[in-house]
Design a protein around this nucleic acid. Structure first.
Lengths: 201, 201
DNA sequence: GTCTATACCCGGATAGAC
DNA sequence: GTCTATCCGGGTATAGAC
Protein backbone atom coordinates (compact mmCIF):
# COMPACT_ATOMS: atom_id res chain seq x y z
CA UNK A 1 0.00 0.00 0.00
CA UNK A 2 0.97 3.59 -0.35
CA UNK A 3 1.22 4.12 3.38
CA UNK A 4 3.60 1.17 3.69
CA UNK A 5 6.06 2.68 1.26
CA UNK A 6 5.44 6.08 2.77
CA UNK A 7 6.46 4.99 6.23
CA UNK A 8 9.21 2.59 5.24
CA UNK A 9 11.75 4.93 6.80
CA UNK A 10 9.99 4.82 10.13
CA UNK A 11 9.18 1.14 9.97
CA UNK A 12 12.85 0.27 9.59
CA UNK A 13 13.38 1.75 13.03
CA UNK A 14 15.08 4.91 11.92
CA UNK A 15 14.14 7.61 14.43
CA UNK A 16 14.74 10.31 11.80
CA UNK A 17 13.20 8.86 8.67
CA UNK A 18 13.94 11.81 6.44
CA UNK A 19 17.46 12.98 7.17
CA UNK A 20 19.13 15.27 4.69
CA UNK A 21 21.65 12.53 3.91
CA UNK A 22 19.02 9.96 3.02
CA UNK A 23 17.14 12.40 0.80
CA UNK A 24 20.39 13.40 -0.87
CA UNK A 25 21.02 9.78 -1.69
CA UNK A 26 17.60 9.41 -3.26
CA UNK A 27 18.12 12.64 -5.18
CA UNK A 28 21.59 11.74 -6.44
CA UNK A 29 20.34 8.48 -7.88
CA UNK A 30 17.43 10.18 -9.59
CA UNK A 31 19.64 12.96 -10.95
CA UNK A 32 21.94 10.37 -12.48
CA UNK A 33 19.14 8.41 -14.08
CA UNK A 34 17.36 11.23 -15.82
CA UNK A 35 19.78 14.12 -15.56
CA UNK A 36 19.62 16.98 -13.07
CA UNK A 37 17.45 19.31 -15.15
CA UNK A 38 15.10 16.58 -16.28
CA UNK A 39 14.44 15.49 -12.69
CA UNK A 40 11.59 17.37 -11.05
CA UNK A 41 10.99 17.86 -7.36
CA UNK A 42 7.84 15.87 -7.94
CA UNK A 43 10.00 12.94 -9.10
CA UNK A 44 12.18 13.24 -6.03
CA UNK A 45 9.37 13.51 -3.53
CA UNK A 46 7.64 10.50 -5.05
CA UNK A 47 10.87 8.53 -4.82
CA UNK A 48 11.08 9.49 -1.16
CA UNK A 49 7.49 8.43 -0.60
CA UNK A 50 6.01 11.81 0.35
CA UNK A 51 4.39 14.69 -1.47
CA UNK A 52 6.25 17.56 -3.01
CA UNK A 53 5.29 20.00 -0.26
CA UNK A 54 6.34 17.63 2.49
CA UNK A 55 9.59 17.16 0.68
CA UNK A 56 10.14 20.90 0.78
CA UNK A 57 9.69 20.75 4.53
CA UNK A 58 12.96 18.81 4.71
CA UNK A 59 15.15 20.37 2.06
CA UNK A 60 15.74 23.96 1.03
CA UNK A 61 15.38 23.23 -2.67
CA UNK A 62 16.73 21.35 -5.63
CA UNK A 63 20.08 23.07 -5.72
CA UNK A 64 20.72 22.39 -2.02
CA UNK A 65 20.37 18.68 -2.75
CA UNK A 66 22.84 18.95 -5.57
CA UNK A 67 25.29 20.86 -3.42
CA UNK A 68 25.16 18.30 -0.63
CA UNK A 69 25.77 15.46 -3.07
CA UNK A 70 28.70 17.25 -4.69
CA UNK A 71 30.20 17.97 -1.29
CA UNK A 72 30.22 14.30 -0.51
CA UNK A 73 31.91 13.43 -3.81
CA UNK A 74 34.60 16.07 -3.40
CA UNK A 75 35.28 15.06 0.19
CA UNK A 76 35.91 11.52 -0.99
CA UNK A 77 38.28 12.54 -3.73
CA UNK A 78 40.28 15.09 -1.76
CA UNK A 79 40.58 12.63 1.08
CA UNK A 80 42.77 10.52 -1.20
CA UNK A 81 45.30 13.28 -1.71
CA UNK A 82 46.02 13.36 2.04
CA UNK A 83 46.68 9.65 2.43
CA UNK A 84 50.27 8.57 3.19
CA UNK A 85 50.52 6.59 -0.05
CA UNK A 86 49.69 9.74 -2.00
CA UNK A 87 52.20 11.87 -0.14
CA UNK A 88 55.28 9.72 0.36
CA UNK A 89 57.46 7.87 -2.12
CA UNK A 90 58.39 8.01 -5.76
CA UNK A 91 56.06 10.00 -8.05
CA UNK A 92 54.98 6.97 -10.07
CA UNK A 93 54.06 4.99 -6.97
CA UNK A 94 52.19 7.94 -5.50
CA UNK A 95 50.33 8.25 -8.80
CA UNK A 96 49.47 4.57 -8.75
CA UNK A 97 48.18 4.88 -5.21
CA UNK A 98 45.91 7.74 -6.21
CA UNK A 99 44.61 5.93 -9.28
CA UNK A 100 43.84 2.79 -7.33
CA UNK A 101 42.15 4.68 -4.51
CA UNK A 102 40.27 6.84 -6.99
CA UNK A 103 38.74 3.73 -8.48
CA UNK A 104 37.63 2.68 -5.01
CA UNK A 105 36.12 6.07 -4.18
CA UNK A 106 34.33 6.19 -7.52
CA UNK A 107 32.88 2.78 -6.81
CA UNK A 108 31.83 3.41 -3.22
CA UNK A 109 30.55 6.96 -3.76
CA UNK A 110 29.26 6.17 -7.24
CA UNK A 111 26.08 8.29 -7.35
CA UNK A 112 27.77 11.35 -5.92
CA UNK A 113 30.88 11.21 -8.06
CA UNK A 114 28.77 10.51 -11.13
CA UNK A 115 26.88 13.71 -10.48
CA UNK A 116 30.13 15.63 -10.09
CA UNK A 117 31.56 14.33 -13.34
CA UNK A 118 28.51 15.31 -15.36
CA UNK A 119 28.23 18.94 -14.30
CA UNK A 120 27.84 21.58 -16.97
CA UNK A 121 28.40 24.68 -14.84
CA UNK A 122 24.99 26.30 -15.23
CA UNK A 123 24.71 27.58 -11.66
CA UNK A 124 27.07 29.04 -9.10
CA UNK A 125 26.99 25.78 -7.15
CA UNK A 126 28.01 23.82 -10.21
CA UNK A 127 30.83 26.18 -11.07
CA UNK A 128 32.15 25.97 -7.54
CA UNK A 129 32.20 22.16 -7.69
CA UNK A 130 33.85 22.20 -11.11
CA UNK A 131 36.58 24.47 -9.80
CA UNK A 132 37.31 22.09 -6.93
CA UNK A 133 37.32 19.18 -9.35
CA UNK A 134 39.89 20.96 -11.49
CA UNK A 135 42.05 21.37 -8.38
CA UNK A 136 42.02 17.61 -7.91
CA UNK A 137 42.85 16.96 -11.55
CA UNK A 138 45.71 19.42 -11.39
CA UNK A 139 47.17 17.61 -8.40
CA UNK A 140 47.13 14.42 -10.47
CA UNK A 141 48.58 16.20 -13.48
CA UNK A 142 51.40 17.50 -11.31
CA UNK A 143 52.27 13.98 -10.28
CA UNK A 144 52.28 12.77 -13.88
CA UNK A 145 54.72 15.54 -14.75
CA UNK A 146 56.89 14.60 -11.77
CA UNK A 147 56.88 10.97 -12.86
CA UNK A 148 58.00 12.04 -16.32
CA UNK A 149 60.81 14.13 -14.84
CA UNK A 150 61.88 11.20 -12.69
CA UNK A 151 62.13 9.05 -15.83
CA UNK A 152 59.58 6.56 -14.56
CA UNK A 153 57.28 6.77 -17.57
CA UNK A 154 57.84 6.47 -21.32
CA UNK A 155 59.89 9.49 -22.36
CA UNK A 156 57.57 10.34 -25.27
CA UNK A 157 54.46 11.03 -23.19
CA UNK A 158 53.07 14.54 -23.13
CA UNK A 159 52.39 15.03 -19.40
CA UNK A 160 49.27 17.16 -19.83
CA UNK A 161 47.69 14.87 -22.41
CA UNK A 162 48.66 11.76 -20.44
CA UNK A 163 47.11 13.17 -17.28
CA UNK A 164 43.86 13.91 -19.11
CA UNK A 165 43.72 10.43 -20.59
CA UNK A 166 44.52 8.92 -17.22
CA UNK A 167 41.71 10.81 -15.53
CA UNK A 168 39.39 10.02 -18.41
CA UNK A 169 40.06 6.32 -18.11
CA UNK A 170 39.41 6.24 -14.39
CA UNK A 171 36.37 8.52 -14.53
CA UNK A 172 34.79 6.53 -17.34
CA UNK A 173 33.99 3.89 -14.74
CA UNK A 174 30.87 5.80 -13.78
CA UNK A 175 29.41 4.98 -17.19
CA UNK A 176 29.29 1.25 -16.64
CA UNK A 177 30.51 0.10 -13.22
CA UNK A 178 27.74 -1.14 -10.95
CA UNK A 179 28.41 -2.61 -7.50
CA UNK A 180 28.55 -6.36 -7.22
CA UNK A 181 29.17 -7.33 -10.81
CA UNK A 182 32.95 -7.10 -11.06
CA UNK A 183 34.74 -7.48 -7.70
CA UNK A 184 36.14 -4.08 -6.77
CA UNK A 185 39.64 -5.43 -6.08
CA UNK A 186 39.75 -6.92 -9.58
CA UNK A 187 38.63 -3.65 -11.08
CA UNK A 188 41.33 -1.74 -9.22
CA UNK A 189 43.96 -4.11 -10.57
CA UNK A 190 42.51 -3.96 -14.08
CA UNK A 191 42.63 -0.18 -14.20
CA UNK A 192 46.08 -0.06 -12.66
CA UNK A 193 47.51 -2.48 -15.22
CA UNK A 194 45.70 -1.03 -18.20
CA UNK A 195 46.87 2.49 -17.40
CA UNK A 196 50.45 1.70 -16.52
CA UNK A 197 51.23 -1.41 -18.56
CA UNK A 198 48.86 -1.03 -21.51
CA UNK A 199 46.97 -3.71 -23.36
CA UNK A 200 49.68 -5.18 -25.57
CA UNK A 201 51.40 -8.33 -24.36
CA UNK B 1 23.61 46.23 -34.60
CA UNK B 2 21.06 43.53 -34.16
CA UNK B 3 20.14 43.43 -37.83
CA UNK B 4 23.78 42.89 -38.75
CA UNK B 5 24.05 39.80 -36.63
CA UNK B 6 20.61 38.74 -37.70
CA UNK B 7 21.51 38.75 -41.38
CA UNK B 8 25.06 37.50 -41.03
CA UNK B 9 24.04 34.31 -42.81
CA UNK B 10 22.82 36.20 -45.84
CA UNK B 11 25.64 38.71 -45.81
CA UNK B 12 28.20 35.96 -46.03
CA UNK B 13 26.77 35.08 -49.43
CA UNK B 14 25.05 31.90 -48.36
CA UNK B 15 21.91 31.56 -50.51
CA UNK B 16 20.25 29.36 -47.88
CA UNK B 17 21.14 31.05 -44.63
CA UNK B 18 19.21 28.70 -42.40
CA UNK B 19 19.77 25.15 -43.56
CA UNK B 20 18.89 22.34 -41.21
CA UNK B 21 22.57 21.42 -41.00
CA UNK B 22 23.68 24.87 -39.92
CA UNK B 23 20.96 25.10 -37.28
CA UNK B 24 21.85 21.64 -36.04
CA UNK B 25 25.41 22.75 -35.59
CA UNK B 26 24.33 25.77 -33.57
CA UNK B 27 22.02 23.59 -31.51
CA UNK B 28 24.61 20.89 -30.86
CA UNK B 29 27.07 23.43 -29.51
CA UNK B 30 24.45 24.98 -27.26
CA UNK B 31 23.26 21.59 -26.00
CA UNK B 32 26.82 20.72 -25.07
CA UNK B 33 27.44 23.96 -23.23
CA UNK B 34 24.38 23.98 -21.03
CA UNK B 35 22.98 20.49 -21.41
CA UNK B 36 20.06 19.47 -23.59
CA UNK B 37 17.30 20.04 -21.04
CA UNK B 38 18.73 23.31 -19.80
CA UNK B 39 18.86 24.72 -23.34
CA UNK B 40 15.64 26.44 -24.37
CA UNK B 41 14.39 27.02 -27.89
CA UNK B 42 14.70 30.68 -27.01
CA UNK B 43 18.44 30.16 -26.42
CA UNK B 44 18.79 28.37 -29.73
CA UNK B 45 16.87 30.90 -31.78
CA UNK B 46 18.85 33.74 -30.24
CA UNK B 47 22.09 31.94 -31.06
CA UNK B 48 20.86 31.62 -34.65
CA UNK B 49 20.00 35.31 -34.73
CA UNK B 50 16.22 35.02 -35.20
CA UNK B 51 13.17 34.81 -32.97
CA UNK B 52 11.79 31.63 -31.55
CA UNK B 53 8.85 31.54 -33.98
CA UNK B 54 11.08 32.07 -36.99
CA UNK B 55 13.28 29.31 -35.71
CA UNK B 56 10.28 27.00 -35.63
CA UNK B 57 9.71 27.82 -39.29
CA UNK B 58 12.93 25.93 -40.07
CA UNK B 59 12.93 23.04 -37.62
CA UNK B 60 10.23 20.69 -36.43
CA UNK B 61 11.19 21.00 -32.79
CA UNK B 62 13.86 20.50 -30.19
CA UNK B 63 13.96 16.73 -30.45
CA UNK B 64 14.35 16.86 -34.24
CA UNK B 65 17.50 18.91 -33.76
CA UNK B 66 18.82 16.36 -31.31
CA UNK B 67 18.03 13.49 -33.63
CA UNK B 68 19.80 15.11 -36.59
CA UNK B 69 22.89 15.75 -34.47
CA UNK B 70 22.94 12.18 -33.16
CA UNK B 71 22.55 10.83 -36.68
CA UNK B 72 25.64 12.65 -37.74
CA UNK B 73 27.64 11.32 -34.80
CA UNK B 74 26.55 7.74 -35.39
CA UNK B 75 27.25 7.93 -39.11
CA UNK B 76 30.79 9.00 -38.33
CA UNK B 77 31.39 6.20 -35.89
CA UNK B 78 29.83 3.39 -37.91
CA UNK B 79 31.73 4.57 -40.98
CA UNK B 80 34.91 3.50 -39.21
CA UNK B 81 33.77 -0.10 -38.85
CA UNK B 82 33.50 -0.43 -42.64
CA UNK B 83 36.98 0.81 -43.42
CA UNK B 84 39.50 -1.72 -44.78
CA UNK B 85 41.80 -1.26 -41.80
CA UNK B 86 38.96 -2.23 -39.49
CA UNK B 87 38.02 -5.30 -41.51
CA UNK B 88 41.28 -6.90 -42.63
CA UNK B 89 44.27 -8.12 -40.65
CA UNK B 90 45.09 -9.29 -37.17
CA UNK B 91 42.59 -8.41 -34.41
CA UNK B 92 45.01 -6.17 -32.53
CA UNK B 93 45.86 -4.16 -35.62
CA UNK B 94 42.21 -3.83 -36.54
CA UNK B 95 41.52 -2.63 -33.00
CA UNK B 96 44.32 -0.10 -33.23
CA UNK B 97 42.93 1.19 -36.51
CA UNK B 98 39.52 1.69 -34.95
CA UNK B 99 40.91 3.42 -31.89
CA UNK B 100 43.02 5.79 -33.96
CA UNK B 101 40.18 6.59 -36.34
CA UNK B 102 37.75 6.96 -33.46
CA UNK B 103 39.95 9.67 -32.01
CA UNK B 104 39.85 11.43 -35.37
CA UNK B 105 36.08 11.18 -35.68
CA UNK B 106 35.59 12.40 -32.13
CA UNK B 107 37.77 15.37 -32.89
CA UNK B 108 36.23 16.29 -36.24
CA UNK B 109 32.63 15.64 -35.20
CA UNK B 110 33.19 16.83 -31.66
CA UNK B 111 29.88 18.58 -30.90
CA UNK B 112 27.81 15.74 -32.32
CA UNK B 113 29.70 12.92 -30.66
CA UNK B 114 29.74 14.83 -27.38
CA UNK B 115 25.98 14.97 -27.49
CA UNK B 116 25.79 11.25 -28.19
CA UNK B 117 28.05 10.36 -25.29
CA UNK B 118 26.04 12.37 -22.79
CA UNK B 119 22.59 10.94 -23.48
CA UNK B 120 20.49 9.77 -20.56
CA UNK B 121 17.77 7.96 -22.51
CA UNK B 122 14.79 10.09 -21.48
CA UNK B 123 13.06 10.04 -24.86
CA UNK B 124 12.54 7.49 -27.61
CA UNK B 125 15.06 9.30 -29.79
CA UNK B 126 17.68 9.11 -27.07
CA UNK B 127 17.06 5.43 -26.45
CA UNK B 128 17.38 4.69 -30.15
CA UNK B 129 20.73 6.49 -30.30
CA UNK B 130 21.95 4.74 -27.17
CA UNK B 131 21.07 1.38 -28.67
CA UNK B 132 23.09 2.14 -31.79
CA UNK B 133 25.96 3.33 -29.67
CA UNK B 134 25.92 0.06 -27.77
CA UNK B 135 26.15 -1.75 -31.12
CA UNK B 136 29.33 0.13 -31.89
CA UNK B 137 30.81 -0.58 -28.47
CA UNK B 138 30.00 -4.25 -28.85
CA UNK B 139 31.84 -4.40 -32.15
CA UNK B 140 34.89 -2.99 -30.38
CA UNK B 141 34.45 -5.37 -27.47
CA UNK B 142 34.34 -8.27 -29.90
CA UNK B 143 37.67 -7.24 -31.34
CA UNK B 144 39.23 -6.97 -27.89
CA UNK B 145 38.09 -10.51 -27.16
CA UNK B 146 39.51 -11.69 -30.49
CA UNK B 147 42.83 -10.02 -29.72
CA UNK B 148 42.91 -11.80 -26.37
CA UNK B 149 42.20 -15.13 -28.06
CA UNK B 150 44.96 -14.45 -30.57
CA UNK B 151 47.40 -13.91 -27.70
CA UNK B 152 48.19 -10.35 -28.79
CA UNK B 153 47.33 -8.73 -25.46
CA UNK B 154 48.39 -9.39 -21.88
CA UNK B 155 46.88 -12.72 -20.88
CA UNK B 156 45.47 -11.36 -17.62
CA UNK B 157 43.11 -8.82 -19.16
CA UNK B 158 39.40 -9.30 -18.72
CA UNK B 159 38.11 -8.64 -22.26
CA UNK B 160 34.85 -6.99 -21.21
CA UNK B 161 36.47 -4.71 -18.64
CA UNK B 162 39.34 -3.89 -20.97
CA UNK B 163 36.94 -2.94 -23.74
CA UNK B 164 35.03 -0.64 -21.41
CA UNK B 165 38.20 1.05 -20.22
CA UNK B 166 39.40 1.38 -23.79
CA UNK B 167 36.19 3.05 -24.90
CA UNK B 168 36.21 5.20 -21.80
CA UNK B 169 39.71 6.44 -22.49
CA UNK B 170 38.93 7.36 -26.08
CA UNK B 171 35.54 8.88 -25.31
CA UNK B 172 36.93 10.99 -22.47
CA UNK B 173 38.48 13.18 -25.15
CA UNK B 174 35.21 15.06 -25.47
CA UNK B 175 35.73 16.43 -21.98
CA UNK B 176 38.83 18.41 -22.81
CA UNK B 177 39.93 18.19 -26.47
CA UNK B 178 39.36 21.41 -28.40
CA UNK B 179 40.47 21.81 -32.02
CA UNK B 180 43.76 23.52 -32.66
CA UNK B 181 45.41 23.15 -29.26
CA UNK B 182 47.03 19.73 -29.57
CA UNK B 183 47.70 18.65 -33.18
CA UNK B 184 45.30 15.86 -34.01
CA UNK B 185 48.01 13.53 -35.30
CA UNK B 186 49.86 13.86 -31.99
CA UNK B 187 46.70 13.12 -30.08
CA UNK B 188 46.05 10.01 -32.13
CA UNK B 189 49.54 8.74 -31.37
CA UNK B 190 49.24 9.64 -27.70
CA UNK B 191 46.00 7.69 -27.28
CA UNK B 192 47.32 4.75 -29.28
CA UNK B 193 50.45 4.48 -27.17
CA UNK B 194 48.78 5.09 -23.84
CA UNK B 195 46.15 2.44 -24.50
CA UNK B 196 48.40 -0.24 -25.95
CA UNK B 197 51.77 0.42 -24.30
CA UNK B 198 50.74 2.06 -21.03
CA UNK B 199 52.44 4.85 -19.16
CA UNK B 200 55.32 3.02 -17.51
CA UNK B 201 58.69 3.17 -19.22
C1' DG C 1 4.99 16.63 9.38
C1' DT C 2 1.98 15.94 5.92
C1' DC C 3 -1.49 17.22 3.11
C1' DT C 4 -4.41 20.08 -0.76
C1' DA C 5 -4.50 24.04 -3.31
C1' DT C 6 -2.37 27.51 -5.66
C1' DA C 7 0.87 31.36 -7.02
C1' DC C 8 4.12 32.23 -10.28
C1' DC C 9 7.19 31.53 -13.97
C1' DC C 10 9.21 29.56 -17.92
C1' DG C 11 9.51 26.35 -21.72
C1' DG C 12 7.79 24.31 -26.13
C1' DA C 13 4.94 25.17 -29.61
C1' DT C 14 1.31 27.68 -32.59
C1' DA C 15 -1.70 31.54 -34.80
C1' DG C 16 -1.88 34.92 -37.80
C1' DA C 17 -0.39 39.67 -39.37
C1' DC C 18 3.07 41.66 -42.32
C1' DG D 1 10.45 34.26 -43.55
C1' DT D 2 10.05 36.98 -39.79
C1' DC D 3 7.60 39.06 -36.44
C1' DT D 4 4.27 39.85 -31.95
C1' DA D 5 1.10 37.73 -29.15
C1' DT D 6 -0.57 33.82 -27.00
C1' DC D 7 -1.75 29.03 -25.48
C1' DC D 8 -0.79 25.42 -22.48
C1' DG D 9 1.65 22.25 -19.72
C1' DG D 10 4.73 21.54 -16.21
C1' DG D 11 8.27 23.26 -13.08
C1' DT D 12 9.79 25.35 -8.37
C1' DA D 13 8.16 26.92 -4.45
C1' DT D 14 4.71 28.58 -0.83
C1' DA D 15 0.26 29.15 2.02
C1' DG D 16 -2.39 27.39 5.26
C1' DA D 17 -5.51 23.61 7.07
C1' DC D 18 -5.14 19.42 9.66
Amino acid sequence: MASDARRAGRRSGNPEPYTLASLVEVAARAFNERGYDATSMEDLSRAAGITKSSFYHHVAGKEALLRAALDRALDGLFGILGEPGAVDGEPLERLRHIVRRQVEVLATELPYVTLLLRLRGNTETERWALARRREFDQAVAGLVAAAVDAGAVRPDVHPVVAARLLSGTVNSLIEWYRPGRVPLADLVDAVDRQVFEGLRR
